[in-house]
Structure formats: structure tokens, C-alpha cells
Write a protein that binds this DNA or RNA. Structure first.
Lengths: 203, 203
DNA sequence: TGTACATCAGTGAACGCGCGTTCACTGATGTAC
DNA sequence: TGTACATCAGTGAACGCGCGTTCACTGATGTAC
């Protein structure tokens, strides 16, 4: 006895609706303050139906990270790689990240907040997804001095921290400040890379 | 009819106890998830007594920021200024910040989390206190190129973002990793300052 | 083809519980005269 | 000095409410034969 693909689609659609209302409510009041009933109400399902999808809010959060945060981050990297190749990859990643934050501020706030929030599982899972940004940025950091690979990773991680910091500033000041905040971020990353910058990300 | 100074001390002591249990509970479950009854119970007062001190949890949070976060940040700057003068002030600020995070992880987590959390008032208030770090770091950024003061501020702000990022990493990995995380942070800041670094913070 | 059965998302009623808030009261301390 | 009054932190009882969770049920769809 297998499952109807159409039924599976319905099921998936409800789960996605739960994810979106969760992001929307968390944007206003913070994820940990949300209740199962509150989220269900906003998603137009009975509280009891919630259990057909997730055991509790924490499971919903974990699957939200897998289902939305992962692809969100990967899309940033993909678009950055397809961008103007003369510019260091780290700068393109930064640009794309800011554009993505403008396009989906609720998801961006979730990422920025849960990266340092109170739930260890979330911190770890979000951090794992963000590692893709660090890995990509690493390509534009030239080896310099004796500390080769290790030093490059340290700088690439700093790029990601600066990107998240700029995201937070953007969410605070409103998306209309995106150009200014993005320029600041690019300036910061250029300082960080300094003479180590590698023109293209593709050697 | 004025108030007995001894009574005022008692009152202050209870408020401080409320602050500390709030930080402790928020460390585990996040500030926005906390309830007035939960906090009161942990502070060994009746729920009704809470109202003798604060109108609600948000007011408690705002006063916690004034009463604990402000002095915490200012102490970092003060100790950094009293440190080894040959090193750029930004690096000394970073060192002191990490040491302070080790000394009071609960307060550190509160700062890092609420800086980007769901409550706008908190984000603004914490950001305002953290401005002291940026202001101090600014002193070790030499003017370079045409963008003088503006460029220095941008770099100084990046220093603060990196410090907070390292704090988050420290809280995640455990305080026993403080030396390693601190070294990474100093490396990142040195990259950022590059040739602009100003040896002492005091010209 | 028709009939019997399995699966499974969604539901309404009901539960016990902890929440925020109000109220009137206590008791210690300070002030007025 | 003693007496009457004001202030104010702390409290227990009580309230109505929304919470998370359980249960038995429905109804649509898929499978077996």
C-alpha cells in the first residue's frame, strides 16, 4: 500500500504553510515564544492536525531548517558562482546574501536569530547550512604566510560573520537601506581580504 | 517622606536576583519564552511581588540591559584601555571581550542573542551599549584613502561584529576553547586592520 | 467489474495545568507632632 | 518621648484563559481479490 503522489503534495503543501506562518510569527515575536496552537491557527488547521506533520514545535523548526534554510543558502552560493567572475567570490556571495535577505526577510531573521539562539540543535543545524558560504568564500582567500589552509578558513569564516552582521543591520534598518548596508559590507570584506584577495573564485 | 537607604538596598537586591535568574533561564530557553511566574519562582518571590519591581518581562529586560549590559561593555573598554599599550586598542578590546564572555557566559549569550532577537527595543538598547566597543576600536583604525572618518567607522563596526561572532562561537563550543577562539578572533581583526592598524589607541 | 479492507490527514470535545493579573491584606519602617 | 499615620515590599486566594495533549471518529483514497 503506497501513497498517492497527489496526497503527498497536499501533505507537503500544509507543511510548507506551517513553515511560512512560523517564520512570519517568529519574525514578530521570536521562535521560542511560539506555541503549537498559535502556529496551527495561523496556518488554518486544527491544533490536533499539527501532530499529523510534526511531533512538536522543535521538530517543525528542525525540518524548516532542512527544507528552507539549506536551499536558501545553497541558492546564494549558486547565484554567486554564476555572477561576474572578475570579482572575488566572497564579494559575490555577500551581494547575493544581501539580495536574498531583502527577498525573504523573515527567513533571514530566522537564520540570524537561531544561529545564536537558545536552542542548541538549531544553532548547530543553521551553522551547518551556513558552512556552504564559508566554503565558497574560502576560494577568494589567497594562501599567504606559513599558515596556509588554516589561515584561509579563519578569514573565510570572518566573511560569513560579517555577512550575518550586515543581514542583522539590514533587518533592523529596513530593506530600503539595502544598497548602503551592502556597500558597507563589501568594504569590510575588501579590507579583510586585503592583498590576499583572489580575483576569480575559479583558479 | 523619603525612603530608607537600607530598604532601597533590599529592593535593589531583589531586582538584581530577578536579573540573574532571568539570564540563567534565558541561557537555557531564550528570553522571549520566559514567563513572569517562572522567573519569580526561580527568584524565590511570589508572582505578585514581581509587580513591585517591573510592569512586565519586557520592562525587566530593558532595565537588565541598562543595569548589567551597559556596565559589562564599559568594563571591557576600561580594561582594554588599561592594557598593554603597544597593541592596537581593537585587539585589546577583543581580548577583554572574550575574557568577559568566559567570566559571564549567561550575560554574554543574552547580549549576542538579543542583539539580533525578536524584540526591537532590546536590539536597539543592546546595540547602543555595544557602540562603546566600536568607538574604542575606531581609535586603532588609521585613516587611509579618501573616505577618512566614514571608512574608519565601517572598519570599527566590523571589529565589533567579529567580536560578537567569536563570542557566539565560544558559547557554542564551551569556555574551554576560549584561547583558540580568541586567537582566531585576533587573527581576523589583524587581517581587517591590515596596514591601517594604529599601534597604540592613544595618539 | 464490484466489494471489502487499509491507510491516513483532518477534526471536535475534553482534560488538567500553568499563565498573567486583580484584589485586599500584613507587617516593617519612616515621619509628624 | 509616645502616638497616629503614611509608605511600600511582599503575599495568598481567586479569576478567566490559552496551552499541549489524548481520544475516538470521519471521509477520501488506494489496494486486494
Amino acid at each position: 500500500v503506497r501513497v498517492n503522489p497527489e496526497k503527498k503534495e497536499d501533505r507537503e503543501r500544509v507543511a510548507q504553510r506551517l513553515f511560512r506562518v512560523t517564520l512570519s510569527l517568529a519574525f514578530a515575536h521570536g521562535f521560542v515564544s511560539l506555541g503549537l496552537r498559535e502556529v496551527s491557527r495561523a496556518a488554518d488547521i486544527a491544533p490536533t492536525s499539527f501532530y499529523r506533520h510534526f511531533a512538536d514545535m522543535e521538530e517543525l523548526g528542525r525540518e524548516l531548517i532542512e527544507s528552507l534554510v539549506g536551499p536558501f543558502v545553497d541558492a546564494i552560493v549558486t547565484r554567486a558562482r554564476n555572477g561576474h567572475a572578475a570579482e572575488p567570490l566572497a564579494l559575490r556571495v555577500a551581494r547575493e546574501a544581501m539580495a536574498s535577505a531583502v527577498a525573504d526577510p523573515e527567513l533571514a531573521r530566522f537564520i540570524v536569530a537561531e544561529r545564536v539562539g537558545a536552542i542548541p540543535t538549531f544553532r548547530a543545524a543553521v551553522g551547518e547550512k551556513l558552512a556552504a558560504l564559508s566554503l565558497a568564500s574560502r576560494e577568494s582567500v589567497g594562501a599567504e604566510g606559513s599558515d596556509g589552509a588554516e589561515g584561509r578558513t579563519v578569514v573565510a569564516d570572518a566573511v560569513v560573520v560579517l555577512v550575518l552582521g550586515a543581514c542583522a543591520e539590514l533587518l533592523d534598518r529596513g530593506t530600503q537601506h539595502a544598497p548602503a548596508v551592502t556597500e558597507r559590507l563589501l568594504l569590510q570584506i575588501r579590507c579583510l581580504l586585503g592583498s590576499r584577495a583572489v580575483g576569480s573564485g575559479r583558479p
